[in-house]
Write a protein that binds this DNA or RNA. Structure first.
Length: 483
RNA sequence: UCCUCCUUAGCUCAGUUGGUUAGAGCGUCUGACUGUUAAUCAGUAGAUCCUUGGUUCGAGUCCAAGAGGAGGAGCCA
């Protein structure tokens, strides 16, 4: 079976290769059989498109045909020809088919019909064989690749920050403890507390909730750096936007102020969306149609105004609206829903944190494009954000997208030792754990900025998937670590 | 963690006021037919009605607790 050159289906469907003998390997999506001819839809994951394999039932034989069921894996040899039927440019006229792995049709759970996303989530090991998840995970790859390409083009260096961390001062939520101590009989100290000095690292350790602080060390040596790694939050969050294990991209830039930071965030997001539109048009088209069909199931008032591709073009074609927190509060205070009491959390004054409903109003109703809000009240933001001269705000910024809300959160970092120490004291952050972080202000401190992008939320936006569990291969959520 | 809703065949769902033998479409299987496109036509098989307990002469249906799932909120990315 190795006489012919192997091709992936993505190389064949365009129709540039014709009347050539090839070998193709993949999984059967569907088989349509009759007395004189058999059609097999074959997919190898390289593209959303299936290759139509055409066979002569007499030549192939009944024993072989019985084994060619949905889900079976095949090696097919034959000749690529212009298709006689409609719906595809080329088809593979099979001279020989080998069944590499059978799939019992009584038991194989994927059928050539629409399945619910909830059902597919229960068979996460098989769902990438479906059209929707094939498209989602090709686009996920595209966003990973485009991220590295974007930063590389701009002279950034990728830094692997630690996954096991000894500092719990990041203040970004509950952490997962990492320990090799005996869970039933841990060594105790004189006070009867767990003696962490006996643990593997000689201290209490956790899975990282952010690589930012470590990335800052590299920004203040290599200038422009970014991390792209797993992140863990032990929050009991049960929503379509949260995972216990997710991936985060965190660029950190020396000599960038908040404006430079916002500019980079906008350029980055536009680059990613453009990359998807340019290189993954057929997957996006499929997901776009899928989204339109889903929308039709909903009552009129719940439907999206724009379809997926229109939403992507909104990001790529328009400048993001930039307003500061104070302006945002003014707009919200005077907005129709606020005056009519439609907000669940009415806006009555300066200083409160914006709720999901407020962010969505600004993005989807007021400006109808991505919005960056900056200069937030210091009391609702982290200790490391740079204090503004007004004494009440910090140089923070959030990028808000339609539907998914906050996709990026960032800030200019506090580079002045005095101000940083004062903020840490105000917020009860212990200095001793962050001695090295303070050293960065002690020795050659420079103004710098950075942001964090929740990768799965970006993939949600680009694919139009409404549940974050459907854009990561094997989701980890409270009570669920199957696979 | 809070609020609301859901759980019936492999999948998607219907099931009246509590009443005899729980239905459909798709899929599977069998057969027919056809260069088919989630093929078409005919037929077959397929059910722990989420679990436990309760009310009742009688529970898929009513009540309670639990499990799982979805949507929204909070936390956040």
């Amino acid at each position: 079976m190795s006489a012919f050159a192997k091709f992936r289906i993505s190389e064949l469907v365009s129709g540039t290769i014709l009347d050539t003998q090839v070998a193709v390997q993949g999984w059967v999506r569907n088989k349509r059989e009759s007395k004189n001819v058999v059609f097999i839809s074959l997919n190898d994951g390289s593209t959303i498109q299936n290759l139509q394999v055409v066979g002569d039932p007499v030549h192939l034989g009944e024993t072989l045909l019985r084994k060619i069921n949905s889900g079976a894996s095949l090696t097919v040899e034959g000749t690529i020809k212009a298709s006689q039927g409609k719906g595809q440019k080329v088809e593979l006229e099979a001279s020989q088919i080998k069944v590499d792995g059978e799939a019992d049709p009584e038991k194989y759970p994927l059928q050539p019909k629409k399945h619910s996303l909830e059902f597919l989530r229960e068979i996460a090991h098989l769902r990438p064989r479906s059209q929707t998840f094939g498209a989602v995970f090709r686009l996920r790859h595209a966003m990973i690749f485009a991220t590295h390409q974007f930063f590389n083009e701009r002279g950034f260096f990728n830094i692997h920050t630690p996954i096991i961390t000894g500092s719990d001062a990041e203040g970004a939520g509950e952490m997962f403890r990492v320990s090799t101590l005996d869970g039933l009989k841990p060594p105790l100290d004189d006070e009867g507390e767990i003696d962490h000095s006996k643990d593997f690292f000689g201290k209490e350790t956790n899975l990282t909730v952010s690589g930012q602080l470590e990335a800052e060390a590299f920004a203040q040596s290599m200038g422009l750096v970014y991390t792209f790694g797993p992140t863990f939050r032990a929050e009991n969050s049960n929503t379509s936007r949260h995972l216990a294990e997710f991936w985060m991209i965190e660029p950190e830039m020396a000599y960038y102020d908040l404006n430079d930071n916002m500019g980079l965030a906008e350029d980055f997001l536009k680059y990613l969306v453009d990359y998807a539109l340019k290189h993954y048009a057929d997957d996006l088209e499929f997901l776009n149609d899928r989204g339109i069909r889903e929308e039709h199931q909903k009552p009129q008032h719940q439907r999206q105004e724009l379809n997926l591709i229109e939403r992507l073009k909104l990001v790529s074609d328009y400048q993001f609206e930039r307003i500061n927190y104070t302006q945002a509060i003014d707009i919200l205070k005077n907005s129709k829903p606020n005056k009519k009491g439609k907000f669940q959390f009415p806006i009555d004054g300066w200083g409160i944190d914006l709720q999901s409903e407020h962010e969505r109003y600004l993005v989807e109703k007021c400006f109808k494009r991505p919005v960056i809000i900056y200069d937030y009240p210091k009391d609702i933001k982290a200790f490391y954000m740079r204090s503004n001269d007004d004494g009440r705000t910090v140089a923070a910024m959030d990028v808000l997208f339609p539907i998914i809300g906050e996709v990026i959160g960032g800030s200019q970092r506090e580079e002045r030792m005095g101000q940083l120490l004062a903020r840490m004291k105000e917020m009860d952050i212990p200095e001793k754990d962050l001695w090295w972080y303070l050293d960065l202000r002690r020795f050659g401190s420079v103004p710098h900025s950075g942001f964090g992008l929740g990768f799965e939320r970006l993939v949600q936006f680009v694919t139009g998937m409404t549940n974050i569990r459907d854009v990561i291969p094997f989701p980890r959520t409270p009570g669920n670590a199957e696979f």
